[in-house]
Amino acid sequence: MTTVMLVDDSATMLMSLKAILTKAGYAVETAGHGKEALDKLGKGVKPNLIISDVNMPQMDGITFAREARKAPGMRFTPILMLTTESEATKRAEAKAAGATGWLVKPVGPDQLLGVIKQVLPGA
């Protein structure tokens, strides 16, 4: 089963996205911020895709994306940034950090699942 890791400091967002992805047939791992997500990767969790918020406490999404790329087996795993942030400079930072895409909230379920199909064509 394809596993998606959700990283967001909003419990509401985690719950909402988890409901959408679970219904679509994905297994879901959640983390409340970048550091927690990084810890999970360090403990052997190997998601097929990561969807991360940008503005989070402890470790923001862009730093997390940069660090996640260094984790074993995560070099080519798609990382989508899902955020309210619309500043172009932040987007460029995320791209440089290794993010695969940038999605501005709110994103409809169909749009989100469509993007996932694009970055995970076989899933």
Partner: peptide, 10 residues
Amino acid sequence: AVGHVQFQDI
């Protein structure tokens, strides 16, 4: 509707 609840985060 679950997707629309993102309004709360915004």
